[in-house]
Design a protein around this nucleic acid. Structure first.
Ligand SMILES: [Mn+2]
Ligand SMILES: [Mn+2]
Ligand SMILES: [Zn+2]
Ligand SMILES: [Zn+2]
Lengths: 136, 136
DNA sequence: ATACTATTTGCAATTCTGTTGCAAGTGTTT
DNA sequence: AAACACTTGCAACAGAATTGCAAATAGTAT
């Protein structure tokens, strides 16, 4: 879908900053941190704007957080149709120990786990580490 | 095992700071962040020392990082014998959305996942969120 | 028991990450 | 074109983590 429609369909105004951030996400096939975005966009937008754009995109279901054992959070585009109400990114993530990139494994479902009684599960997150296709 | 032996067996000198940090880990059954440790120990040790102790313990296999979608990293004692060379904490982690605590599910193995060819898996991390035994 | 040396610690300074308040600017609707 | 709410940039701030260096100390050799 084209960038402007993605924004308006998620209830966001079509501003230059949001357009710019969204295009950077589209350009890469791995998850990006705030500082990744900043490197590409600092000439055009303030770092605070990038933070606020990330928050807006997260809230509206345009991106999702990719968990990672590293310090700073990373984000990737939602493949399915997500919204404020309903995020359904129930896939595993892969982090390459060589290149450091994290990617969505959109076709690898997170398995259901049986927990000891007394626990109530609401969500699961699976992070697999190793060497990615490109680095192998 | 007693605190001093844990330290020396992992090639670390038996200092007050390390003894203190290790005892705090033993005292709680959930994962601790730097700031959790600082709250208990700031009267006795500098915060930088606590950071450096965490790094040393991680490196030597006394603690492992507990993945968490939240801001700051958390750590927990390794149950099995881990070392610099070999960390094997292949269990799931549970984060309670009520109390906020993260615990090791030492008896819940992370299942083996089949990845598309080309990927080399070295480690898996499973984070389950929901309501814990105590809060339920 | 003492002396020696490499390691560890505390402190101050610095960097990096993320948030907030507010005035100016912009997108959308009418 | 005008109105208004939303968005942005800037400056200030807060928190998390790292670094350099001098002083202190653990473990070992004497
Ligand atoms: Mn994903
Ligand atoms: Mn654990
Ligand atoms: Zn790679
Ligand atoms: Zn709980």
């Amino acid at each position: 879908m084209d960038t402007e429609n993605i924004l308006s369909e998620h209830g966001l105004r079509n501003t230059e900053a949001r357009h710019g951030v969204l295009d950077v996400f589209k350009k890469y096939d791995y998850a990006l941190s705030h500082s990744d975005l900043e490197k590409e966009l600092q000439k055009y937008f303030d770092r605070v704007t990038i933070y606020r754009t990330i928050h807006a995109f997260l809230d509206k279901g345009i991106i999702h957080k990719v968990i990672d054992d590293s310090e700073s959070a990373k984000y990737a585009l939602c493949a399915d149709e997500c919204s404020s109400d309903r995020h359904h990114d129930n896939h595993a993530h892969f982090k390459c120990t060589k290149c450091g990139n994290s990617e969505c494994l959109n076709h690898v479902q997170v398995p259901n786990i049986n927990l000891p009684s007394g626990y109530l599960v609401s969500e699961s997150n699976l992070l697999i580490e190793g060497v990615c296709k490109s680095c192998n």
